[in-house]
């Protein structure tokens, strides 16, 4: 558990130990999410060891593909002992893999997403988010309640403005625990 002595006011104050801890949490979260995803899609999914990076918002947007890139995003509100938001981003290739696996057929453009495909995206994301949150909750013995997921398909910059604004009074930086499904 994190004791009172480890409270910080900004990401810059994090030491190597704290960063390692987040890498571990990220690794367990992503691992659980990958397992859940692999069961749902009946596919073998491996993941890379996550890296922890602290960046400014604009850097994050560029890192993820630029402000005008179209992505699918699912957002869940966390309440309880641990509050915040979880935002899950799916890029075009990934949604196509999901559609193929679920026999919904590939698409050429994001515009072609119909109701059936949209609900598939929401469901897959919900599975990933809840298994990630579950792993983190179990690891830290903190209870987390998740809201119903909300989905958007739009420009990355606009989507990222949501967490950016939500924490705009607190910080100008974002911590990324970057694990990749392979």
């Amino acid at each position: 558990m994190v004791g009172e002595t480890m409270k910080i006011n900004s990401y810059q104050e994090m030491n190597g130990f704290a960063i390692d801890m987040f890498r571990e949490i990220g690794s367990i979260g992503t691992g659980n999410a990958a397992t859940a995803l692999s069961q749902t899609l009946s596919a073998k999914i491996s993941m890379s060891l996550p890296e922890v990076k602290i960046m400014g918002y604009n850097q994050v947007i560029d890192f993820l593909g630029g402000p005008e890139k179209i992505v699918a995003a699912v957002l869940v509100h966390m309440t309880g002992e641990f509050s915040g938001i979880m935002l899950y981003l799916l890029d075009f290739n990934f949604v196509n893999i999901v559609f193929e696996r679920l026999s919904l057929g590939k698409i050429e453009h994001f515009e072609e997403i119909d109701e059936m495909r949209a609900s598939a995206i929401a469901e897959i994301s919900n599975i990933i988010i809840s298994s990630y949150a579950n792993a983190v909750a179990q690891l830290s013995s903190i209870s987390i309640n998740l809201s119903v997921p909300a989905m958007a398909i739009n420009m990355l910059g606009g989507i990222m403005s949501v967490p950016m604004i939500e924490y705009g009074y607190t910080t100008d930086k974002i911590m990324i625990v970057d694990g990749k499904f392979i």
Binding site: H77, I85, S147, A150, M151, G158, S161, V162, E166
Partner: peptide, 15 residues
Amino acid sequence: AKMFDIPGGGSLGNI
């Protein structure tokens, strides 16, 4: 814009 329609999202929804 309101990018996400979050049921019970509080201030998240209407900023």
